[in-house]
């Protein structure tokens, strides 16, 4: 793989039942490309949590995954309500999710900390009323060996 590959997905915010489809596809693609299982696992968890968040909180958005030999970068963009207090949102257990979302098995305030745990770098930029952009980078060599 000499050139960078880019996978792009429109994540629908209308239908919770389809949430996670993009992550399933990315996992398949990375398997086919022959990435190490541990790398695939970290990318899968980070992206799945992010994708679910986009559906729960932001009414969907766009997910892009950039893949090259050295690293995998996940870029999640939405036009949702934005995050008021990023530091607070990063605390394990803090969540603004509704009871409905909790009854579906999510919204326990574990998503963002888990995304951070599974990536080597994570950057959140967010503006209230405009949207949120999360960039997660997982290094494929060195850090995890």
């Amino acid at each position: 793989m000499s050139e960078k590959l880019v996978f792009r997905f429109d994540v629908s915010g209308n239908d919770f039942t389809s949430a996670g489809q993009a992550s399933v596809q990315v996992k398949k693609n990375l398997r086919q490309l022959g990435f190490d299982n541990e790398i695939i696992r970290r990318v899968s968890i980070a992206m799945y949590e992010g994708e679910i968040n986009m559906v729960i909180h932001a009414g969907g958005g766009v997910a892009e995954v950039h893949v090259c030999e050295e690293y995998i970068e996940i870029i999640l963009d939405d036009h949702g309500p934005g995050i008021k207090d990023i530091e607070k949102a990063m605390q394990a257990g803090y969540s603004t999710a509704s009871e409905t979302i909790r009854s579906l098995g999510f919204g326990a305030g574990m998503g963002l900390p888990n995304m951070k745990k599974n990536s080597d770098e994570m950057k959140i930029t967010s503006e209230v009323g405009v949207g949120t952009r999360i960039v997660m980078k997982i290094n494929c060599k060195g850090t995890n060996e």
Binding site: G20, V24, K27, R41, I45, Y48, L104, G105
Partner: peptide, 15 residues
């Protein structure tokens, strides 16, 4: 005891 498609996708993500 939770039944929705995310249960299966979650299981998939976790191998």
């Amino acid at each position: 005891g939770l039944v929705n498609p995310q249960v299966i996708r979650t299981a998939l993500m976790m191998d």
